[in-house]
Amino acid sequence: MKKLIFILSCLAVFSLSSNAQKFITKTGHIKFYSDSPAEKIEANNRQVNAALDAATGDFVFKVLLKSFEFEKALMQEHFNENYIESDKFPIATFLGKVNNIKDVSVAKDGKYDVVVEGKLTIHGVTQQVTEKGSFEVKQGKIAVNAKFNILLSDYNVKIPGAVTNNISKSVEITVDLNLEKFASSVN
């Protein structure tokens, strides 16, 4: 019984691990780009929330879909109303881990290649994804960059026959974050 209490208290301590190694942003930038013969579609979201625990490698994103800004108002309306259905599915999330977080030292400036793995949820559909990116540590801040493609069909985003030439089946996602050390008044 004593052992049990000891282990449980260890777990409790572990789960309350300090925020010292946590990095966060609420002004991250995610761009998506669709290139098709008829039309190039680009949208930018500069209000992306993301947090990284540099000790454990836990890495999460929260993206408000209505915050994507398009060049044309009509594209934005179609994106929200017809494709991503942002009233039904207002946010996209990523819950995952940096696989090789041990290679990254937040104490030392430098550039690191990372592999991030986890669950990406868009349009109510969750897919397991593994993508490559880079972390650049500079004066205690981490610049995160990644570029990858996702298939709209993987997330049940349907493109009607009439506009198949206007929207690419695969869209390019560019992630650009500047994570800063999380300053909490509690811890």
Partner: peptide, 9 residues
């Protein structure tokens, strides 16, 4: 852990 990070966000 990841849920907690989400709460932090």
């Amino acid at each position: 852990a990841q849920e907690a990070m989400m709460n932090l966000i």
